[in-house]
Design a protein around this nucleic acid. Structure first.
Length: 880
RNA sequence: GGGCGCGUAGCUCAGCGGGAGAGCAUCCGCCUUACAAGCGGAGGGUCGCAGGUUCGAACCCUGCCGCGCCCACCA
């Protein structure tokens, strides 16, 4: 039998728990998350008197699982919320998901297609039922991923854009907008997807440069003929005019007259319109009001008829020979027919031009005249712009506000009807005599013969635009709404600044009587690979966050993402960097192990100032700086800097120096050791708290082991205490580090083994303020005290006035040492020369600030002193 | 066609008016009693190019070259 016992059997509360030899994330993560949820630590109380802090999650689409971009988004939000929670705020992070209308419908339709079915085979009701089934599956997977990530969301408040409450909010605002004449129904040109068979808003259309063929066609004959160009020849069947610029002298004589439209026998007018660019092509444009947005507007201006020539599947419906042809069949057929008549005067192939595609299925969009519902965005968009202009809402980083203004200040009316089945059905009923009734949540639905509801559903962004207040109970005046609105920060990628943020602003300000939906919009970038490339399946560089969590831990995954997250900037990540983050977590683990093995404690106050060594005072001073920096960086959403600051403090200051300096003190015992145990406990306590928002699992586990407390989820958050700032101690430790580093460098250059005994004298320590530290320096630099027969064979001149004379007889490599000193001398000479040059320049001495001149003088003095010592050291070298 | 941003060490980036930095990678030496997922040390950059402002420029201004993103109704 041994005395060693299992780590979890004999641990009593309040006593430090023994830690395993290395951090094993999996077990800790599941145990801690369970503890956090069952302890109710993430629940936000609408009735407490703490200051509120609210973030509503950008609801993930129920189309699949979370990708690494979500992991970034969630890590940032979780860090913000966790810090506020530790600071004593009533912190609410509200989770939920988006029904994602067209995207989800497409996913389910694809699944059906693999069974050989279409949605029409099932019918509307059954199809929607299938989508709800899918939502249950996919949504469950997403919630599981959020748990793995460690998201500290309030699970009791989870919402879905199609749950009862949010549907009620949709009806309420639709009615309000309708009554305020901000929603209307009109026949307009809209983007139409002939595959999805629905209207699309501008932002659901992706433009790309595609190859096409530009053909020039002669309309009319003889003196009355005019040439127009098009990439969509089939649309000429619907032409109702030709337009020229009013100032274009070439066509003055034709304006007001008619020409014959080939193939159709129709005669169409020539109109003058300033939209036409006289410099492009022939300077004449064919006008197809029913199939082109510009042409539609020209048609409106000149009272032209609109002739729809294609159905919703983009199949031609007119003119015998072409009837029944798909647009891509009709196009060459029309060109061939025109060519047969000798009307094709020029062809340009390939001709690259911008073409719109359905963002969901990539089908080329066909502009189409149709009857749709629109939101009149004018007044709403103006208010949305003003809220940022007058500073009520801050966009971080500020540069991206320009993009926001460009968008809201030029917004077209928003087409909100979609010819889909999955979504909020438009709450409008049409009566038998043409009556139209908009029905709010508490209104009676019209009954009786002939009444029917609009078949269409609302654009998915209509409901997500309500997210910041609908999730808090609006339209009811709930305690949650009163307490948690406006939300504090909206965290999202800059890619949906327009899609979502601008719309939440419009509806939030409108529904909440001018109160903004959030105070700050904190934008982050896209996650990319280690070479800055976009992640794509075809390129094979996609990272699955769950894979990293499995292999390196949730904390390592989060730290890797946060470490690259500068405001608005893209975040490059790689597996190697995640390994580095894992190593960092393990470093913290081992540092805490060391502390516990040596009796570090967080019990009781820190020792009095007089009992603290300068080493203790140094690390405490550094800690105050770090706390202040981290607070500033958090407030500025500079997560990369937060991580960098804490990484270097933990690894360099605490582990590499403080712990190493503490070892001999702890070994010696006595009051000094006791003070060090308290300081070490205090520093680790603060460090773990500062890191907790970013890497919650490992820090909570270690903090519990260190303090015996259950969890630090509720804080407190450390605050900087200026009383512990100590410039003298910092200067002293900097000098100590210089001496130790120089000796180590000497040993390394000399090829001395770490075990190799080196005896040395240390001169000048009192002058450098290091008198008390000789034992520590000897310990860290592995220098033995001089003994009988000591003879210096090498000398190190160290900035700050310390000389180390070493007796390395039998081991020193004179040539190597000489080379080392020569290199140092060259560096010092360069430094001195630079300083002298500056000081020799009267303009510099005259115009530069005194502090800068004084600094240069100091540098020169140091360099000159170094040169003197190096010269002496070279002199002392054996000549052979 | 407009707008925004970026070019700093092999890679990814920080620094943004007074001594060129970090992480990873590379090289050398170490199982030094918390940690080899570690320790110690080293090498590596005319800060895209050309002008200008300044006592002084990676940093401010102008132009050029090369990248990236966003918006837009190029028939």
């Amino acid at each position: 039998m041994t005395v060693a016992s299992d780590a979890h059997t004999d641990h009593t509360p309040g006593a430090p728990a023994p830690l395993a030899a290395a951090y094993q994330p999996a077990e800790v993560e599941s145990r801690r998350y369970e503890q956090w949820v069952s302890g109710g630590y993430f629940r936000a109380d609408a009735t407490s008197d703490r200051p509120p802090f609210t973030i509503v999650i950008p609801p993930p689409n129920v189309t699949g699982s979370l990708h690494v971009g979500h992991a970034l988004d969630h890590t940032i939000q979780d860090a913000l919320v966790r810090r506020r929670r530790m600071q004593g705020y009533e912190a609410l992070w509200l989770p939920g998901m988006d029904h994602a209308g067209i995207a989800t419908q497409n996913v389910v339709e694809r699944k059906l297609a693999s069974e050989g079915l279409s949605r029409h085979d099932l019918g509307r009701e059954q199809f929607v039922e299938r989508v709800w089934q899918w939502k249950a599956e996919s949504g469950g997977a997403i919630l599981g991923q959020m748990r793995r990530l460690g998201d500290s969301v309030d699970w009791d408040r989870e919402r879905f854009t199609m749950d009862d409450g949010l549907s009620r909010a949709v009806l309420t605002i639709f009615k309000k907008l309708y009554d305020d004449d901000l929603i209307y129904r009109a026949e307009r040109i809209i983007n139409w997807c002939p595959r999805c068979l629905t209207a699309l808003s501008d932002i659901e259309v992706d433009h790309s440069d595609d190859e096409g063929e530009l053909v020039s066609i002669r309309y009319g004959d003889g003196d009355d003929s005019i040439v127009v160009a098009t990439t969509r020849a089939e649309t000429m069947l619907g032409d109702t005019a030709v337009a020229v610029h009013p100032d274009d002298e070439r066509y003055q004589h034709l304006v007001g007259r008619e020409v014959e439209l080939p193939l159709t026998g129709r005669r169409i007018p020539i109109v003058a319109d300033t939209h036409v660019d006289p410099a492009f092509g022939s300077g004449a444009v064919k006008v197809t009001p029913a199939h082109d947005p510009n042409d539609f507007e020209i048609g409106q201006r000149h009272n032209l008829p609109s002739i729809t020539i294609m159905d919703e599947r983009a199949v031609v419906t007119v003119h015998g020979p072409f009837q029944g042809l798909d647009r891509y069949e009709a196009r060459p057929a029309v060109v061939a027919a025109l060519r047969a008549q000798g009307r094709i005067v020029a062809e340009k192939r390939p001709y690259v031009h911008s073409v719109g595609h359905c963002s969901r299925c990539k089908t080329t969009v066909e502009p189409r005249l149709s009857l749709q519902w629109f939101v009149n965005t004018g007044p709403l968009a103006r208010a949305a712009g003003d809220a940022v202009r007058d500073g009520r809402v801050r966009i971080e980083p500020a540069e991206l506000a320009k993009r926001y203004f460009a968008w809201v200040d030029n917004m077209h009316d928003w087409c909100i009807s979609r010819q889909l089945w999955w979504g909020h059905r438009i709450p409008v009923w049409y009566g038998p005599d043409g009556e139209t009734v908009c029905v709010g949540p508490d209104d009676e639905v019209p009954t009786g013969e002939g009444w029917r509801q609009d078949e269409d559903v609302l654009d998915t962004w209509f409901s997500s635009a309500l997210w910041p207040f609908s999730t808090l109970g609006w339209p009811d005046e709930t305690p949650e709404l009163a307490r948690f609105y406006p939300t504090s920060v909206l965290v999202t990628g800059y890619d949906i600044l327009f899609f979502w943020v601008a719309r939440m602003m419009m509806f939030g300000l409108y529904a909440m009587d001018g109160r903004q939906p959030f105070d700050v919009v904190a934008l982050h970038g896209m996650v990319r690979d280690q070479f800055g490339k976009k992640m794509s399946k075809s390129f094979g560089n996609v990272v699955d966050p769950l894979d990293w969590i499995d292999r390196f831990g949730a904390d390592a995954t989060r730290f890797t993402l946060a470490r690259g997250a500068n405001p608005g900037a893209d975040v490059p990540v790689s597996e190697e960097w995640c390994q580095g983050s894992r190593n960092f977590c393990n470093k913290l683990w081992n540092a805490t192990r060391f502390a516990l093995m040596n009796g570090a404690t967080t019990q009781g106050p820190l020792p009095e100032h007089a009992e603290l060594s300068s080493v203790d005072r140094w690390i405490l001073s550094r800690l105050q700086h770090v706390i202040a920096e981290v607070d500033e960086q958090f407030e500025a959403f500079e997560f990369a800097k937060v991580c960098d600051t804490l990484y270097h403090f933990a690894w360099d200051d605490v582990c590499d120096w403080y712990v190493e300096l503490a070892k001999p003190v702890l070994g010696a015992g006595g009051p000094a050791a006791d003070a060090t145990r308290r300081v070490l406990g205090h520093v680790l306590d603060a460090l773990l708290k500062l890191l907790h928002p970013v890497i919650p699992f490992v820090t909570d586990e270690l903090w519990s082991a260190l303090t015996g407390e259950a969890t630090l989820v509720r804080g407190p958050w450390p605050s900087a205490d200026p009383a512990y700032l100590d410039d003298a101690a910092e200067a002293e430790l900097a000098a100590l580090q210089r001496v130790v580093t120089e000796v180590r460098r000497f040993r390394s250059d000399q090829g001395l083994k770490p075990g190799q005994r080196v005896i040395a004298t240390l001169r000048g320590l009192p002058g450098a303020g290091l008198a008390a530290h000789e034992p520590l320096i000897r310990s860290l630099a592995r220098l033995d005290a001089p003994e009988e027969g000591f003879a210096a064979t090498a000398s190190l001149a160290i900035a700050g006035g310390v000389d180390v004379e070493l007796d390395t007889r039998g081991t020193v490599d004179v040539a190597a040492e000489r080379a080392r000193l020569e290199k140092d001398r060259a560096a010092a000479e360069k430094e001195a020369a630079q300083c002298r040059a500056k000081l020799g320049n009267p303009a510099f001495v005259d115009k530069a600030p005194d502090a800068v001149v004084a600094k240069i003088k100091d540098r020169l003095a140091v360099a000159e002193a170094d040169l003197a010592r190096i010269a002496a050291a070279l002199e002392a070298l054996p000549t052979s």
